[in-house]
Design a protein around this nucleic acid. Structure first.
Lengths: 346, 346
DNA sequence: ATCTATTTCGGAAACGTTTACGGCAGGGCT
DNA sequence: AGCCCTGCCGTAAACGTTTCCGAAATAGAT
């Protein structure tokens, strides 16, 4: 056992001085501090996390809540791992530890969640994959744990969030497809309560309406955000007497499924069927033709999130600003879209 | 603040009794226990994690170490999220918390890693993505933290591991391709130190040798385990005067890249080029034709891992058995392989 | 009625750390 | 020389919980 007492007794010094030396507190001789640091390094001493956080009242850890066991709308690719990588770069600089807190989608998420925040394992929480009405946010608002959500929600309250610009993505997609001559455009969003689905669909419908396209909503579709969901949607559309000439969707696995089924049916993507996906992710990039989609500065987003949650977690909670960021995405057009093949009759 | 003292004073009872009641310790009246539990529920009391683990000497948390910022050979977060889901099902039953500890691939992994285990944030560690020679394992062996690695390693020592059956996967792939008539078979593994790359390649080479195929090793290839890596490999092979008639690879993103480039070059997969991938993952399933690959009972694997790490983390470390599991995978043949098109001359 | 065993509970110590407080030098000032 | 101030350090009290130990009370047995 290498506690602070062993370290102190080895140096013939009091534990108070040792602690001060290690924590860069004033009131300790420079030479003594050097001796302490060297000995600590030598015997491999690290302050015990429980003791420290018990005394300090904070753990120095930031928890990112992720949900396992359900297909994630934002693509089952390395989205989270890449984001975490950038976050950790910033957070370790600020002496925060980063831990992921997986919660099971199938089980009641609330009770495991409640435990997490009540026990005080982390100083602050980043909540991901927000739902349209998210009881987890209510729980957090009712607790003392500062938090930040990655994604907006309809759940009211005074909290900070960071989200992608789904509205502009949807609007840009519609504008471009209409400019190419499309009139029958299918919009497909993930099932479930993920708020992004509503933001995307609503914005798309508004944009379509502005172009005078507000036909029956049978082209606003929902499916499971997985490859299988994309296949189902494609099959559905292929059986329709007047099938759409373009389709836009905000889930990458779904885009993959759409491709698979359309190609199977002999359609040429970009000519017989225009496809706009969502995020520019590596998996999609090697579909052919690569889907038109929207690029995202993932590193910078991660850094922004990290800085935001660090400032929120800071003890000095007086001047903690409310953060509300809508992160831009850049349009990347490819050969996956083109003018409609046969003139549309609608 | 809702500490155990508030709870006790509300009930006019000592904190000792409250603690005994909450922890199902003997020596407390059934009626008193019921009152305590009800009041705890009422005011939303949860024992503070720092205080508890300080006194108990264990945190009740199991850490899964993952590496961010590098393409993962086993394909993205789908694999891990699914595994984690199954693990948590088992671990919550045993009153363990599950936390993910992301470490940055780019940064020096050792020091952040050292902090993690020395601070005693977790009772036990699951180490993923083991490398052939893995300094992290040495660090863990030198510490008091019980651990389990997901993946074998050449690093010697007396530790438990669970791994997939890469040898049988490689052997089965070779056997089947040879049975179909292939003689020029490319074997491609990820670059980097991931141990699975060596296991797979070595087993493939042995199997080829047993079939009398031990030509020059210019068909044993390595590439980054990403779509881009697959593309590079495919381009390389396409320029060769005598290109192979089959290719087997143990990384799903790489398989996607191979498909993309081969299709681009006008090859028909399963006829002009036979392809065997590795894991049966959703992303690959919607390539066409779906790659021949190997299925894996991910749920059961997760449960097995959870049970293993729980038994390893148990306080009673006397009878902790050493666990060494090689997890089977089931061959799934599809139209992505077939007899070689033009008779091979070698 | 006394003694013992059992049940139930309160008091207090302990876990490892940080930090407020006070003390002891030594130096600079009047 | 006396005084105050500063720099350094040791002591001890917290943080919230679990658990050991002993006390009180009740029941049972002789």
């Amino acid at each position: 056992m290498t506690g602070i007492r062993q370290l102190a007794s080895r140096l013939d010094i009091s534990i108070g001085t040792v602690s001060r030396a290690l924590n860069d507190r004033p009131g300790v001789n420079a030479e003594t501090r050097a001796r302490v640091l060297q000995m600590a390094d030598e015997i491999g001493y690290f302050a015990n996390a429980s003791g420290r956080s018990l005394r300090r009242g904070s753990t120095g850890a930031i928890g990112v809540v992720i949900e396992t066991g359900s297909p994630s709308a934002l693509g089952g690719d390395n989205f989270f791992f890449a984001l975490l990588d950038a976050m950790q770069e910033v957070l370790t600089e600020q002496d925060y530890d980063l831990v992921l807190l997986p919660t099971r989608h199938a089980a009641d998420p609330l009770d495991s969640f409640r435990r997490m925040i009540r026990r005080g394992m982390v100083d602050a929480i980043v909540l991901t994959a927000t739902r349209r009405n998210d009881p987890r946010i209510e729980l957090l608002l009712g607790s003392k744990v500062p938090f930040l959500t990655l994604g907006r929600s309809e759940t009211p309250g005074d909290y900070s969030w960071i989200d992608l610009d789904f509205e502009r993505v949807a609007r840009t997609s519609v504008d471009r497809l209409v400019a190419l001559g499309h009139r029958r455009i299918a919009v497909v969003t993930p099932t479930g309560d993920a708020n992004l689905a509503f933001l995307y669909a609503d914005a798309a419908v508004r944009a379509l309406a502005e172009h005078g396209i507000d036909g029956p909503p049978d082209l606003i579709l929902r499916a499971e955000p997985s490859e299988g969901g994309g296949v189902m949607v494609a099959r559905d559309l292929l059986t329709r007497p007047e099938r759409p000439t373009a389709i836009m969707c905000c889930s990458e696995p779904m885009t993959t499924g759409l491709y698979s089924e359309f190609l199977q049916a002999g359609l040429r993507i970009g000519r017989d069927m225009s496809v706009i996906g969502f995020r520019d992710n590596p998996h999609c990039r090697y579909l052919s033709p690569a889907p038109t989609c929207f690029a995202l500065a993932l590193d910078e987003l991660g850094q922004h999130v990290a800085n935001a949650i660090a400032s929120i977690a800071a003890k000095d909670r007086t001047a903690a600003p409310r953060i509300r960021t809508i992160w831009p995405m850049e349009f990347r057009e490819t050969a996956s879209i083109g003018p409609p093949r046969s003139p549309d009759r609608s």
